[in-house]
Design a protein around this nucleic acid. Sequence first.
DNA 1: TGAGGCGGAACAATACCTTGACTGTGGCGG
DNA 2: CCGCCACAGTCAAGGTATTGTTCCGCCTCA
Lengths: 332, 332
Amino acid sequence: MNTDTRFLHSLKEAMPSTRGVKYSTEDFAPPDRLDWLREVIGREYANVEITPPDAGVFNEMVIYAWEQLRLSVIRSDAITLQRLPREPDLISQDAYFAVIHLSGCYRLLQNGREVFLQPGDMTLYDATLPHHIVCPQPFSKLLISIPRPLLRERVAGIEHCTALHIPGRLGIGSVAAGFIRSCAHQAEQLQAGEFSLLSEHALDLLVLALATVRPSHFKLSKSRAMALHRVKAFIENNLSCPSLNPAAVSAGTGLSPRYISLLFKEEDNSLMRYVWQRRLESCRKELLNPIHAGHRICDIAFRWGFNDLSHFSRLFKQHFGCSPSDYREGHK
Amino acid sequence: MNTDTRFLHSLKEAMPSTRGVKYSTEDFAPPDRLDWLREVIGREYANVEITPPDAGVFNEMVIYAWEQLRLSVIRSDAITLQRLPREPDLISQDAYFAVIHLSGCYRLLQNGREVFLQPGDMTLYDATLPHHIVCPQPFSKLLISIPRPLLRERVAGIEHCTALHIPGRLGIGSVAAGFIRSCAHQAEQLQAGEFSLLSEHALDLLVLALATVRPSHFKLSKSRAMALHRVKAFIENNLSCPSLNPAAVSAGTGLSPRYISLLFKEEDNSLMRYVWQRRLESCRKELLNPIHAGHRICDIAFRWGFNDLSHFSRLFKQHFGCSPSDYREGHK
DNA sequence: TGAGGCGGAACAATACCTTGACTGTGGCGG
DNA sequence: CCGCCACAGTCAAGGTATTGTTCCGCCTCA
């Protein structure tokens, strides 16, 4: 990409917000703003063509790192973004973007579908695929960047779920949107650990809301998907049992170990690897959770089916890059 | 319990709501309402004494089964509920009740703590232990019943987390309260499956919010908290002994005086300061107690380990703002 | 003014956590 | 079903945080 980088330096200084990073066109002279905006959006979001209106550009983004996600609060003048089929691919983010529209008009096209959002509504799109976003007036929105694998593992046929209209006034959509807005609103007030924990809930709720509007026609050999689902459910219920092993899972689900192994193969994983992942994940969450602040690390580890602290320690570090106690400290 | 059951039948019919069960005094003739209300509350919540205001009773409850929890939306006229220490124990629910206050005034007493809620605020109490709830005006609230084991396994020392004030305007409290209100609001709109899934999130968020306000001695590591508890127990047993001093406590508990001093430091107090506080408090209670009306002040003081009346007098005034005899007179 | 309670500093004894090396087996893939 | 080797599980050593001690000087209050 040829975007010039003369703003890179000034950018890195322009962000003294407590938790989030703030970018604003206001910090620059009007003639520079458009170039600057192109660079920022290209770097932080996706490589898109930006068509600003004739009037002056105003655009303000506050970006929060949110565990595995990124939450952005965006206010902007009218704008059009377009990602073309052959965009040069220094992909900034291999992610889906979930949008919670707050005010103004918002129109999105992707995969031949088109969606209009009212304030409160949500939608999802693939940041790396061609898309077209039109906002003919000043508007504001929340944008949640969700790394592709995270959604893939949660939603079968996610690629068919883009550019759908998720109503934000009723039912689960309203609950999810309300929750995420609430998180964004309180972001600065929250402890780092609390804030992180909320991201998991946000993702869960988004996925739930998505499920209500997804088209029903994607076909993934149903029985296999169901079987895998059952297996995972069984694992979830028995995570804390140290003797959880292929034989146990097999007995508990009525499927042969070999078959289970094949099921996991589909997502480039294996049974026990998955089990350890889930255990680690549970421990990690508990380490962050202030409610368990008084508990020893070994208590937590044993509670989730580890039976040896050294084993846990090693695995944890390998997975998350630092030792359990460092992790707990670092996220206060 | 002797509550009559003549309403049982009519109750079971009075609930054609889609998901929730609705109870309302409106469905009954005014003279019957109070009896009916007593029965419903006793059966659905806890066995409490109900003191209605002089005016007519209005009370409306919609109860949703929420996976392992129960969510109630309650609107009511002024009311006072009191669970006495020796309530006959056909315990309707062995659960904690989380309250999200919506409108009006709400005051709760339990375990010697007292909490006032503003709209939006939350608190938690143990439905099976004595408690006292005062709402002097019409009010509305959400109530989430959480089976005891569910909270026990999530929060160490949950029994000390009752009657705490969880602010509902800021930070995690606002996120949690907002989420649950949103769930209640959309309850009728949601699929059964969706609705169930949300309960897990609700519980998680509640627990998180609780963690931010739990009393500080839970940030104390377990062993330290235990040690402090032992020290206090020893003090309580020997309050009346005038020679109770650091050396004695040390001997009685097996901890060094210095260490005990450190323990008290954590609650911004010191050993002997605590001892005098307890003695004064005991004396104060006895001064108020009509049983001891005939006893001389110096008898009372000496009985609680003071060995010098002038010392007692001075401390008392310093603490409670008036002399012991004034205090006794003033509170007849 | 002196007795006694309080808390700072320095230190010993643990408890708790992390890491490394090693090994035998059970989970994985053909 | 079977063979192979990655990896779960042990043991031991080292490091760091926590717990509890002693000694001592200061300050308060009777």
